[in-house]
């Protein structure tokens, strides 16, 4: 997450009138398309959230405005609050897991021989590059009751008892555990490689100096490395929060939000409301709320981006 250094001189825009029109025609094709496929839908989403758009509307086109009824019923629906709490806690768990492991792996990379570093990098790229539909299916297979290799392995450990026939998707905690592993597994590569890139930028002399002062390796890591990594870590953390908050595919494909809605995070809750129950107005209201929460996170991200020197 290094910083793009923009030579301010580069942007010295010439003042000719012809040049002032250039950005307009350069932007308008993309602008028009984005207006049509992105901005208009967002407006439509907000409008829909104030209507009783449902399955009947899909077929007949008839709907009524219901004011803020969707929002009122949302805020009085315990299912929504549970879903929100779940999302927040699960996001926190996933981010914490991936950042801690990612930071560790990044540091590990700095201590390896070239060959070994190459091996670890390739391993990371495999985990990273797997499309999440495929990895979700692999996960279901790893944890398949009766035949899953993970069930077998955990049984062999003789710590958890006989896990052979445990159905991970039938137990709230185990569902979370397996999805957590899946997300962390795929998130660590990005974090580790990004942090590693930043870590190699740290001047070695600084570390040597601290070492000569008698600091332990951990002390060096804490005082020098972590200090240097802080801005990158912050950005990576914010990005992870946003991504993990938005996770949908893996949960949908592994547990479908079950058992008993235990893993129904906001994304799943929105989808089931809108595309299984077809209460589209209600679904739109959930989306609007979800998006507003996300906007707050994004503001943090952009602020940090600007602080880190990005010139918007």
């Amino acid at each position: 997450m290094a910083i793009s250094t923009v030579n301010p001189g580069l942007r010295r825009a010439a003042k000719g009138p012809r040049r002032n029109l250039a950005p307009l025609w350069l932007l308008s094709p993309a602008g028009i398309v984005l207006l049509a496929v992105l901005v208009a839908p967002i407006i439509y989403l907000v409008v829909t959230s104030f209507t009783d758009y449902d399955q009947r509307t899909l077929y007949t086109g008839a709907y009524d405005s219901v004011g803020i009824a969707n929002y009122l019923s949302l805020f009085t629906d315990p299912d929504f609050w549970w879903s929100l709490i779940r999302t927040v806690l699960f996001t926190a768990a996933m981010v914490a897991g991936s950042i801690v492991i990612g930071t560790g792996v990044s540091h590990l990379l700095t201590r390896l021989s070239t060959v070994m570093r190459y091996v670890v990098t390739i391993v990371l790229i495999f985990a990273w590059g797997m499309p999440n539909v495929a990895s979700s299916l692999v996960w279901k297979w790893l944890f398949q009751p009766g035949y899953g290799v993970m069930n077998w392995f955990l049984t062999q450990l003789h710590v958890f008892g006989d896990m052979t026939n445990v159905d991970w998707s039938n137990n709230a905690f185990l569902s979370y555990a397996s999805i957590w592993m899946l997300i962390v597994w795929q998130a660590v590569p990005f974090i580790a490689l990004t942090l590693y890139a930043a870590e190699t930028q740290i001047p070695t002399e600084l570390k040597e100096a601290v070492r000569l002062d008698g600091a332990s390796e951990w002390g060096v890591y804490k005082t020098i490395t972590l200090t240097f990594l802080k801005p990158t870590l912050l950005l990576v953390t914010i990005l992870s929060v946003i991504w993990d908050y938005n996770v949908f595919n893996q949960i949908w494909l592994v547990s479908q939000g079950g058992p008993d809605d235990a893993t129904s995070t906001l994304g799943v809750f929105t989808f089931t409301t809108a595309f299984v129950g077809f209460h589209l107005g209600q679904g739109a209201a959930i989306s609007v709320v979800t998006t507003l929460i996300l906007l707050i996170l994004t503001v943090f991200y952009i602020r940090n981006l600007i602080r880190s020197g990005e010139d918007l």
Binding site: Y245, N246, L266, L280, A284
Partner: peptide, 9 residues
């Protein structure tokens, strides 16, 4: 950054 499910509707 928008969630996919939000735009989907």
């Amino acid at each position: 950054m928008l969630p996919a499910t939000a735009l989907l509707i």
